[in-house]
């Protein structure tokens, strides 16, 4: 049995679909943090069978979590303070995502223009479709995105 210690203050992202943990890790740019970050892949889950978990020992306000439901709408966000669970929530899909993902359309201006903001808007709330603000192309995740 793998043991990863409890965190005193920080965020636990639970119920991540197995395999999406690394995608969230990269989209949240957790690689740039100095604090302890634990990535647990394929943890046993009664409900999901297998799941990924991310534990981040940092101030909860310091990370913008808006993008999480875009990658995995089922993720539960747990906020831990002084070793206690103080909040458990799911995050609503953001209406706009800035500078997190990039447009895959080779005809889009964002592929050549330097210093540009990469902006996507929520085009369809029923099917969670995001489109590039510049070219309206639907976003589809690719391996190269992270």
């Amino acid at each position: 049995m793998l043991n990863v210690g409890k965190i005193e203050n920080g965020i636990v992202l639970d119920h991540i679909h197995a395999g999406r943990g690394m995608s969230i890790y990269h989209h949240l740019q957790l690689n740039k943090l100095e604090c302890p970050v634990a990535i647990i892949k394929n943890a046993r889950s009664n409900i999901m069978g297998k799941k990924d978990i991310l534990k981040i020992e940092t101030d909860a306000e310091s990370i913008n979590l808006d993008v999480i439901p875009f990658i995995d709408p089922d993720v539960t966000v747990n906020i831990i303070r002084n070793g206690e669970l103080v909040m458990k929530k799911r995050i609503q899909l953001p209406k706009e995502i800035r500078n997190v993902i990039r447009c895959n359309n080779p005809r889009c201006i964002t592929t050549i223009e330097q210093g540009i903001q990469h902006i996507f808007y929520l085009a369809d709330t029923r099917s969670n479709i995001y489109r590039c603000r510049y070219c309206d192309e639907k976003y589809t995740e690719q391996e190269t995105d992270w």
Binding site: N105, R107, I109, I112, E113, I116, Y134, C135, D136
Partner: peptide, 26 residues
């Protein structure tokens, strides 16, 4: 401009009105 969204980039920094006369196939 041949790239889609080029005129939108222009509006983000322009101090004069921009007319999009065609941005790629967009």
């Amino acid at each position: 401009h041949p790239k889609e969204g080029a005129a939108m980039v222009a509006t983000q920094v322009s101090r004069i009105p921009i007319i999009n006369c065609g941005d790629g196939g967009h």
